[in-house]
Structure formats: structure tokens, C-alpha cells
């Protein structure tokens, strides 16, 4: 500690003290000010997140219908009914397929793109920015592009494949459950690759270049270098990106809604779209559908929290 600040303190602080009221002195204490700083955000999060959450639990145990004031508490009946509902069962399967099957593709392509972008080449900043576009453009809007790319009559994909003689007639991309799930997943992978790439790229830039050079001097091949030098460093960030992506895909709405709205025979719903479509006639059951997501989300949130904390320390 130098002398000058202490002198300054002796001169100025007493003057300051005299002018301070009890309130002002209280606010000078870190803990008090910290809690005061939480108030505006806490009010919004409590009013529009915590309160609706508990209200949702309550609604899910009633037979509330939109437009009718009176309703009864019916316990867990909504949850029970759903378990034997064929559309709901399919929805669970769809959501699982959608959020897990897409992961390895996003991961491998994203990792590959990150490794490519991590090299030096001309215009790399502009190219990097451009390739992130699928992630930043409104999903509802890019989903419309995919809606047309998957159109049964106008799809340019079908046109090209027909032109090359690979197929006889147009592919009905959204016409069956299998096709629709595959198309939906494809569009999701397209949207997710840039997120994986940019996140992994941030991790790659933390790999010291001396490590590469040392490994190369030792005669390590590209693959050996990847597994023994790069992978250990980016392992955690890859896991974190994967968990984020699973949570977001699991609770997705815009893409499956715009592309399918439930699809043929309501067989291609995910949790979000099924809850939305039930909302207008059976609010209680819709609330239960949405809440069925909770245990899954809680599990993945807990995993994510663990990795983030281990990254921290």
C-alpha cells in the first residue's frame, strides 16, 4: 500500500461520512447493495417465470378449458390419460429421436468446420461470419425456406435428383412420419452446425500452438495430434455445447411448428407443438404435456451445471 491514497482517505472520508445518512451507510455495505441490485431482475423473473411455472403445475392438475371460468382439480388424471394416448406416445418418441439423432451429425460437422476455420486463409473473418448465418437468422424464417426446399412439388432438391436421374418422381419429404422426421432433423442439423463450430473454435483457440509443434516434431500424425493434443483440451467445451444443443432441440418449437404443425395424422409432433395444438381445447392437458418435459430438462440442466463448474475450477 502506498502512502498517498491513505493520506487522501484521511482527508476526504471524514467529510464524506458526516454527510451520510443511515440509509446511505447501509447501501455502502456490499451485501445490502448486492441484494438491492437483484430486485428489478428478480421481480421480472419471479412474476413471469417462477409464478407461471407453479401456475402451470396447478393447471396441469385441473380440467380447465379456455373460455370457461369454472374448472375442477382432478389430480394427476391429465398425466395418466396422456400415458396411454397414442399421439402423446409418438410425440415422446419423436422428441427423443429429434434431439438425440441430430447430435452426432451436428457434433462431427461442427468439429470439422471448427478445424477448417481454425486454419489461416484469406477472408477468414468474413467467411466465418457468413457461415454463422443459419444460427442468427430467425428460425421461423429459415424454416420457411426449408418448407419450400421440402415441398412435394417445387422442391429444388427433388428437381436436381430427377435431373441427375437418381429418382423417378419427386420425394415427398414431409409426407410420411419417417420422411418428416428425417427432413426435420436435417434442417435442425443445418441450423445447429454453426453453433457447434463457433463454440468449438473458441476452445481450439485455447490450444497453445507450441503443443502442436512439439507433437509434430515428435513425429505425431495429424490424427494422433488430434486425439492426444487437441481433444483433451476441447473435451469439456464439446460436452457443454452438446448438452446445450440437446436441451434446445428437445424444447424446440419454431422449426417443427412451421415445417409440420404435427405432420401427417398428428404423428410428427414434438412436446412444444403438441402442447400448443392442445392449448385451445384442453388447457389442463396442454399444461401437463408441457410439464412432461421438466424431468428431462432438469436432468440435462444438472449435468450441464456440473460440467460448467468443473470447467470453472
Amino acid at each position: 500500500m502506498s502512502v498517498i491514497p491513505a493520506q487522501a482517505a484521511r482527508e476526504t472520508v471524514p467529510q464524506q461520512r458526516r454527510r451520510m445518512s443511515t440509509w446511505e451507510r447501509l447501501v455502502e455495505r456490499e451485501a445490502v447493495l448486492a441484494y438491492l441490485f437483484m430486485v428489478p431482475g428478480a421481480l421480472i423473473l419471479l412474476g413471469f417465470m417462477a409464478y407461471p411455472f407453479f401456475l402451470g403445475i396447478y393447471y396441469s392438475m385441473t380440467d380447465k378449458v379456455v373460455g370457461f371460468a369454472s374448472f375442477d382439480v382432478i389430480g394427476l388424471l391429465n398425466y395418466q390419460t396422456l400415458l396411454s394416448d397414442r399421439i402423446f406416445q409418438t410425440t415422446v418418441a419423436n422428441t427423443m429421436i429429434y434431439s438425440f439423432v441430430t447430435v452426432p451429425f451436428k457434433l462431427v460437422l461442427g468439429l470439422a468446420l471448427a478445424l477448417v476455420l481454425n486454419q489461416k486463409f484469406r477472408f477468414s473473418r468474413v467467411i466465418r461470419a457468413g457461415l454463422l448465418l443459419p444460427w442468427i437468422v430467425p428460425t421461423a424464417i429459415s424454416s420457411l425456406a426449408w418448407l419450400m426446399l421440402f415441398d412435394s412439388a417445387l422442391s429444388p432438391i427433388s428437381w436436381v435428383l430427377r435431373d441427375w436421374g437418381w429418382i423417378e418422381s419427386n420425394i415427398n419429404f414431409l409426407g410420411s412420419r419417417e420422411n418428416a422426421l428425417a427432413s426435420l432433423s436435417f434442417a435442425n442439423i443445418w441450423r445447429g452446425v454453426p453453433f457447434f463450430a463457433i463454440t468449438i473454435l473458441a476452445g481450439l483457440q485455447a490450444v497453445p500452438s507450441e503443443l502442436h509443434e512439439a507433437a509434430a516434431l515428435d513425429g505425431a500424425s495429424t490424427w494422433q495430434r488430434f486425439f492426444s493434443v487437441i481433444l483433451p483440451v476441447i473435451r469439456n467445451i464439446v460436452l457443454i455445447a452438446t448438452l446445450f444443443s440437446i436441451i434446445w432441440t428437445f424444447s424446440d418449437f419454431a422449426l417443427p411448428y412451421v415445417l409440420l404443425k404435427g405432420g401427417p395424422g398428428s404423428m410428427v409432433h414434438v412436446f412444444g407443438t403438441l402442447a400448443y395444438s392442445s392449448m385451445s381445447f384442453d388447457l389442463g392437458q396442454a399444461a401437463a404435456i408441457a410439464l412432461y418435459q421438466f424431468p428431462f430438462l432438469a436432468l440435462f440442466a444438472a449435468l450441464l451445471l456440473r460440467f460448467i463448474r468443473s470447467e470453472d475450477s
Binding site: 451485501a31 448486492a34 437483484m38 423473473l45 411455472f53 393447471y59 418435459q293 440435462f300
Partner: peptide
Amino acid sequence: FRFRGGNIIGVAVFLAYLVPPTLLFIPLAQ
């Protein structure tokens, strides 16, 4: 700031980030 409960609030903020709109939109409309 160092204060009691700071860590817990930090975790709560992070968890709030993970709450998706599809979980809340129905009661939120009400």
C-alpha cells in the same frame, strides 16, 4: 460483490437461462 447467497443466486440465474419457452407459454398466457 462478496455476499452470502451469491453463489446460489449465480446458479439460479444459470438455471433460469435453461428454462425454455415451451415449458411456460401456457400458464404465461394466463
